[in-house]
């Protein structure tokens, strides 16, 4: 579900206004865009570049450099499995494959119905409680395949796509 052009224009104007004159703010502005849509829509990024006076080249070189930014809509529910060292040692690889089986998608993919997105993150700083996963931003500690499954929102539950 892509945002409409007028919608993005308004959103971008607000974000650009907030950050334009602040130093070191391009990444903050892109964060704001992603917070708004769950990803960075191409048109919005271009629009933002124009309003913040940042070359298109710069916007895209930055967007594609940082792992955090997504260029495609991730789907409604984002499931992240931590693959940091602590979690890795505590069985994150198995957890990831369980999650992958449960959702029927590989890491980095979005399910066809646009409901779920599975991704790998590199440490959320909760290593003492490894393995860790997050569902729509909510942290789950000492996760097992079952506890993760129990936390998956059912497909019908709507959510504005934020991670």
């Amino acid at each position: 579900m892509s945002p409409t052009p007028t919608q993005t224009e308004d959103d971008v104007a607000v974000i650009a206004k907030r950050w334009k004159d602040k130093r070191g703010s391009l990444i903050m502005a892109l964060h704001a865009l992603q917070d708004r849509y769950g990803y960075v829509p191409r048109e919005a990024a271009m629009n933002l570049g124009e309003q913040m006076n940042v070359p298109l080249a710069r916007i895209y070189e930055v967007l594609t450099f940082y792992n955090y930014f997504r260029l495609k809509s991730p789907g409604k529910h984002v499931v992240s499995v931590c693959m940091g060292t602590a979690c890795y040692l505590k069985g994150a690889p198995q957890l990831l494959s369980q999650a992958s089986d449960a959702l029927g998608i590989a890491p980095g993919e979005t399910s066809e119905d646009g409901e779920y997105h599975l991704q790998v993150v590199r440490c959320v700083g909760c290593c003492g409680l490894a393995p860790v996963a997050t569902v729509n931003g909510e942290l789950l500690a000492k996760v097992t395949g079952e506890s993760l499954a129990a936390h998956l929102p059912s497909p019908s539950v709507s959510n504005d796509g934020k991670a």
Binding site: H31, F65, Y68, R122
Partner: peptide
């Protein structure tokens, strides 16, 4: 003092 965020790059 201002806060700036990283974006997923070690």
């Amino acid at each position: 003092v201002e806060v700036r965020l990283g974006a997923g790059a070690f």
